[in-house]
Nucleic acid binder design. Structure first.
Lengths: 106, 106
DNA sequence: CATGTATATGTTTAAATTACCAAATAGGAA
DNA sequence: TTCCTATTTGGTAATTTAAACATATACATG
């Protein structure tokens, strides 16, 4: 693999990696519907606020969300909604995998 | 987040995580064009064959590829090609991010 | 100004990841 | 059968990750 190509795949993988955590993926799907402040997301998820804040900073560094302070709260919104289109394929792949696992048992 | 919902996001994240490594992502794009044996992928990537083999087993466990032994070689192929559709969005998100970083410097 | 609340950051710890090497395995070829 | 080759598996060390807690910061409000 050429060096330039490698760097390109590094960048791509970095962005996908930012999505590759259940909490962050959940956050992204929530932000698809509407913007939310850290406290709302913390409430929904039930982790420590510092944990959620760090997950949000990962997403922000990746360029997947942006934020906006209003009053005491910081509101986050989804920057690239198309990123969630993958879920349709992921869900069908999960169903396919489960089916094949069921067939293994026969 | 409800327990059932959590399990669902765990599964989704697990599959996305399998893609979230430069080497594995590169392998997936190569397999989109054609099936390849481990030795060919090892050659392309320049890592130890055992490293490539382990990456392939991660992809296989995730249900993203399947394999098939013929002669001495094991051939891998892409099981859910739609998974790579995300790259279009990822690439545009990377361009968008780079642009905004350039604007920061002005 | 002083206080309180939301968020971010630093630290620590446990667990997971990735690469290599060495060794095991499978099965085709001599 | 014996040897070779492709692949997988096990072990190890270095690095990264995610969670909690404690602390710092920012700033709205009394």
């Amino acid at each position: 693999m050429k060096e330039k190509e490698k760097l390109y795949f590094d960048e791509r993988a970095k962005m996908i990696k930012a999505m590759a955590h259940p909490t962050r993926l959940y956050i992204l799907t929530k932000l698809k519907e509407a913007e939310h402040c850290v406290c709302e997301l913390t409430e929904m998820l039930g982790f420590d606020a510092s944990t959620i804040s760090k997950h949000l900073s990962v997403l922000k560094n990746a360029g997947l969300v942006s934020d906006d302070k209003r009053g005491l709260n910081v509101y986050y919104r989804l920057e690239n909604p198309c990123i969630l289109d993958i879920l349709e394929c992921v869900d069908s792949a999960i169903r396919k995998k489960l089916k094949s696992q069921m067939n293994m048992l026969k």
